[in-house]
């Protein structure tokens, strides 16, 4: 089941992204509200099933290597997007969020380790509850930052369209500027809070279990601290004089680019986090 689902998941996200993005096709685009909701629900259900099957196969918490972490980020960001779209009653950013999710899942499915004896991914001992919370919070934080970056980018796109008086389907179907600004900062705040707890738990774990390989100059640790600081500034930017919604959006968009680049260039080639531990 793992292999077919690994192939099916990116397809599911691609179809969901296409259905969500259909509104941008203008007046001639078919109305697919019900279909897009169901495709997303089915894809999310399949994704959860995949993680359950992976956990069964590995006999451990299924987020063990870079690929499965990226996949978990995809699942959480798609879930968070679904909840957000429901609460704000607007699905305008779905095409982009799910498009990015599809791209990430495609990479995750290509690299994920589906074997009971992982190459080097799974830690020798199964993860304890604190470690699971640390990993889960890091995943939620990354998903939030991803959403913050996407909404920030969309803010910039919409602002540009407004300034240039380009009132096409993209202008019509994106959420309003205020909402995009709120989503950018709100998602950054969730990410910041999760990262605060997740990072502290990680530091606590490193010290309490006296892991000899741990040091603060490790790439993951340095990047996490920088990300934490960066998105913290975005989350509280409304209180910083001169840090306008547009600047916050620009910062979130840059943050997203860095996050994606670091995932693809730094982490994917290494297969696992904290591999020196």
């Amino acid at each position: 089941m793992l292999q077919p689902l690994a192939v099916a998941l990116p397809v599911g996200y691609i179809v969901a992204a296409l259905l969500h993005g259909m509104a941008f096709g203008g007046t001639r685009a078919p109305h697919v509200t019900r279909e897009r909701v169901w495709v997303l629900r089915l894809t999310l259900a399949a994704h959860m099933l995949w993680f359950w099957a992976l956990a069964e196969t590995l006999q451990s918490f299924p987020v063990v290597d870079i690929a499965s972490t990226v996949s978990a980020v995809v699942l959480v960001s798609a879930l968070m997007y679904g909840l957000l779209a429901r609460s704000v009653k607007h699905a305008g950013s779905g095409g982009v969020v799910l498009g990015l999710a599809a791209l990430l899942q495609l990479s995750a499915s290509a690299f994920v380790n589906l074997h009971p004896l992982p190459r080097l991914a799974a830690p020798t001992a199964p993860l304890g509850p604190t470690q699971i919370v640390h990993v889960s919070l890091s995943v939620v934080a990354t998903a939030s930052l991803l959403l913050s970056g996407v909404h920030g980018t969309l803010y910039l796109v919409l602002f540009r369209l407004m300034k240039r008086r380009n009132f096409g389907p993209v202008f019509e179907h994106l959420p309003d500027l205020d909402l995009l600004a709120r989503l950018t900062r709100g998602a950054a705040l969730v990410g910041f809070l999760c990262l605060t707890i997740g990072m502290n738990l990680g530091i606590y774990l490193a010290h309490s279990e006296q892991r000899p390989g741990f040091n603060y100059r490790e790439t993951e640790v340095v990047l996490s601290i920088l990300t934490w600081l960066y998105f913290g500034v975005i989350a509280f930017s409304k209180r910083i004089p001169g840090f306008t919604a547009r600047r916050a959006s620009m910062a979130a968009a840059v943050g997203l680019s860095v996050l994606l680049l670091s995932t693809f260039l730094l982490f994917f080639p290494r297969l696992a986090f904290h591999s020196n531990l």
Binding site: L158, M162, F171, P175, D176, L177, D178, L179
Partner: peptide, 15 residues
């Protein structure tokens, strides 16, 4: 035209 103007404002401010 007046309503279109308000629609435009809605695209910026939402509520």
């Amino acid at each position: 035209v007046a309503r279109v103007g308000i629609d435009m404002a809605e695209r910026v401010f939402g509520r």
